[in-house]
Simulated scan of single mutants.
Amino acid sequence: MSPLTEQQLLQILPNARPVAGIFVPALNRAMARFGIDNRLRAAAFIAQVGHESGHLRVLAENLNYKPDALLALFSRSRISEASARAFGRIDGRPANQPAIANSIYGGAWGATNLGNKAEGDGWRYRGRGLIQLTGLSNYRAAAAALGQPLVDKPELLEQPEVAAQSAAWWWSQRGLNKLADAGSIQDIGSIINTGQPGRVPHGADERRALYKRALEVL
């Protein structure tokens, strides 16, 4: 497969125009490194990271939730109703995003599922990169694979090169190239969004539309 061009990227992700020139070489290096090397794999990868990152423009998780959204999205074992009311965004008061992150990614759930054990780990290791890498365990594994000091400098995942490399590494680790070869687009989105196949991911319609466009362009 030929390297992705800036024109192709903008045909697939038109809202990426401000950052396309920076991301094209980063994406090409990341895809080459992790075997995203045919039309089906590249189309699936670009569609998914495009959806996850708001067309490559959002590299750190936005936790600006209202209380009711927090209660709907996360179980009471992750955030209590009192905390949701105290930390969520209401008229005249922004969300307390560090407190939200430390609630939903900390505590017993965060320690078991994400390796977040120290105070503040939830916010420190919130979702970053093109596929929202989340939690100390994932940061540590990516750091070892990519040779980047992500545990000490988690903000590196907000740089285009590392954001792209981490997404392609995560993709490869979870066998998504095989699913892309099979055209299992909903399962890819489900694994990215929910951690397992067989579910309808958030933004399923946009993921499919971006994938269809990518197939036409590549």
Rank of each mutant, 00 (worst) to 15 (best):
143 A>D: 13
18 P>L: 09
24 V>N: 06
199 R>D: 12
136 L>N: 06
144 A>K: 13
162 V>H: 12
171 W>G: 00
104 I>M: 01
203 G>L: 06
104 I>D: 08
171 W>M: 04
101 A>E: 03
39 R>Y: 02
214 A>K: 04
139 Y>Q: 08
27 L>V: 01
60 A>R: 15
161 E>A: 15
184 S>M: 14
109 W>A: 12
36 I>A: 02
128 R>G: 05
194 T>G: 03
67 P>Q: 08
199 R>H: 13
66 K>S: 11
124 R>M: 08
138 N>L: 06
29 R>E: 15
60 A>H: 12
139 Y>L: 11
71 L>G: 07
173 Q>V: 12
1 M>T: 14
187 D>H: 13
139 Y>R: 07
50 G>C: 00
22 I>R: 15
42 A>G: 09
132 Q>F: 05
14 P>I: 02
166 S>F: 00
67 P>F: 01
148 Q>T: 02
214 A>W: 05
72 A>H: 13
170 W>P: 06
11 Q>H: 02
57 R>M: 13
92 G>N: 11
165 Q>H: 07
211 Y>F: 14
153 K>C: 09
26 A>F: 04
175 G>A: 07
80 S>I: 01
156 L>P: 03
178 K>C: 05
23 F>Q: 09
110 G>F: 03
15 N>H: 13
43 A>C: 05
9 L>Y: 06
218 L>G: 10
120 G>N: 10
64 N>W: 08
169 W>E: 10
203 G>Q: 03
16 A>V: 03
62 N>V: 14
191 I>M: 14
81 E>Y: 01
59 L>F: 12
61 E>Q: 04
134 T>S: 03
132 Q>I: 12
74 F>W: 15
82 A>E: 14
46 I>W: 08
158 E>K: 11
61 E>D: 07
92 G>P: 10
51 H>D: 07
146 L>E: 05
88 G>S: 03
165 Q>E: 14
158 E>Q: 15
201 P>W: 12
44 A>I: 01
43 A>G: 05
43 A>E: 10
3 P>I: 00
164 A>D: 00
161 E>Y: 06
205 D>P: 02
12 I>D: 07
204 A>N: 07
102 N>P: 13
124 R>H: 09
9 L>P: 05
87 F>P: 04
193 N>E: 02
169 W>R: 02
95 A>N: 00
46 I>Q: 06
12 I>Q: 11
142 A>D: 04
217 V>W: 00
120 G>T: 10
196 Q>I: 00
207 R>N: 01
58 V>H: 12
178 K>V: 13
